Structure formats: structure tokens, C-alpha cells
Amino acid sequence: MEIVNLLFYFQHFSLTLPNFVKRVSTCPMPKNFSEWKRAASRLGCDNFENAPYVYHCMPSSFLNETVEFCGRNVPHVGGSCPIYTYKFEENKAPNFRNCSEFKSGCPNKFYFSKMIYKYPACLDIIKDRMCYKADPSCCSNMSCSRPILSTNGGTNGSTEKW
């Protein structure tokens, strides 16, 4: 029951984001560069290729939401996925989270954060479980059936299988 309450809190009581970071229901379609360019234009980071601040869309550090922002294009080593980290000061560059235990899809070589669209496993999160779908520990104790949260924070008794 305590896990359900914690999940309810993170889903319904959001931390404040800086003005330049926007919550979105989902990122543009992975591996579709033209969709990412359109999203960049919509957000005002038109120069996706070579600018100090480029379009990013990724999970937040809590893995319960997806955010987009114009930020610094930072290098990442293989075995990591970029994430947006909440900080008290202005955060204009993604951080990273280890993905080396993913079943598949973890970047295995050096890349820059704006290239996350090439790695769908880094974007595919299960928001109510706050984990990556490719992470084996995400469903290890739940056989990948998850309770559906109701609006009052409890479960409605049904499950969803994936």
C-alpha cells in the first residue's frame, strides 16, 4: 500500500519545473528525425544541428514523466541514458542514468544527449512504476502486470499486462 501512495504522490503532486522545461505526455516518435526537428521548432530551439542549446525530450530523474527543453548537448558514454534532473539552480543540461542492465536497447557507445531519439529504450518508461520498460528489475517482482491507479490513489482492482 505504501508504494501505491508514493506513486500517487509523484503522479499528482508535481515538482516545479523551470520556465524553459515543459512536461509532455510523450516524446516525438523515436528514430523519426523529422518529428524531433518539428518539436524543436515548436519549442523554439530551431537549430537542432549546431547551437549551444538544442532540443531535448527525455524522462525526468523520477522516471514518472517526460519533459522537453532546449539545453546543452552533452556527451554520454555507452551504458547510460540521458535524463532531466531536478535541481534548485537552473539545469540546462541532461544528466544520465545507468542502463547497462537493460534487456536490450541501451546505447553501447559514446553519443551526445540530443541523439536520444536513436535509442527508444531510453525513452520507454513505465510512469506509474517509475522505471524503464527495458530494465529487468522493473517487473521482476510483479510479472509485468501492474495495478491500474484510480484517481483516489488506490487501485481499481484491474491490471494491465504488457
Rank of each mutant, 00 (worst) to 15 (best):
C144N: 07
Y53I: 09
K103L: 12
F10K: 09
N32Q: 10
S100A: 14
G44D: 00
K127A: 14
F102Y: 12
E160S: 03
T66D: 02
Y117K: 00
M58K: 02
C106L: 01
S61W: 03
E35S: 14
R97G: 01
S61F: 12
N19W: 07
F110R: 09
N5F: 02
T66A: 08
D46T: 07
C131D: 06
N64Y: 01
P147K: 05
S158Q: 08
N32G: 03
K118T: 02
I116C: 00
I83F: 12
C131A: 15
I83S: 04
C57K: 04
C131V: 09
K37N: 04
F10G: 01
G154I: 05
M115L: 00
G71P: 11
P30G: 02
F102P: 10
Y119H: 10
I3K: 14
N98T: 10
V77L: 13
N108R: 13
G153A: 04
P18T: 05
F96I: 01
P52V: 08
F13T: 10
G71N: 11
W36D: 02
C144I: 08
W162H: 04
E65M: 12
F88Q: 05
N95H: 04
H56V: 00
M29A: 10
S158W: 14
P82V: 02
C122N: 09
N91Y: 09
N50F: 11
Y119E: 06
P136S: 12
E49R: 11
I83K: 03
S150A: 15
C144Y: 03
S41I: 09
T85Y: 07
S100W: 15
I148H: 08
V54R: 09
R23T: 15
Y55I: 02
S113C: 05
M29N: 14
E160W: 01
Y9M: 07
F33V: 03
R72D: 08
P59L: 04
Y9C: 03
K92E: 10
F69A: 10
S140F: 05
G157E: 11
Y53R: 06
S145H: 11
F20L: 11
T26G: 00
K109S: 12
T26L: 12
K87M: 15
D135W: 03
Y53K: 12
E90V: 06
Y86M: 12
Y55S: 06
S60P: 04
F96W: 11
N108I: 06
S140A: 15
E89W: 10
C139R: 02
Y9A: 01
V4F: 03
L123I: 01
K31H: 07
M29K: 11
L123R: 04
S80D: 09
N64K: 03
M130T: 08
L63A: 02
N91S: 14
T159C: 03
V4A: 13
K22D: 14
N73K: 08
A134T: 07
T155W: 01
P120R: 02
L6N: 12
E49L: 10
T85L: 14
E68M: 11
Q11N: 14
R72C: 09
G157L: 05
R146K: 14
E68S: 14
F110V: 00
P147F: 13
C45D: 04
G78Y: 06
C138T: 01
I125W: 13
S137I: 09
Y86D: 08
T66W: 05
F96P: 00
Q11F: 08
I3Q: 13
P147N: 10
I125A: 14
M1Y: 13
S100N: 06
N47K: 06
V67H: 05
V21E: 05
A134M: 13
E68N: 11
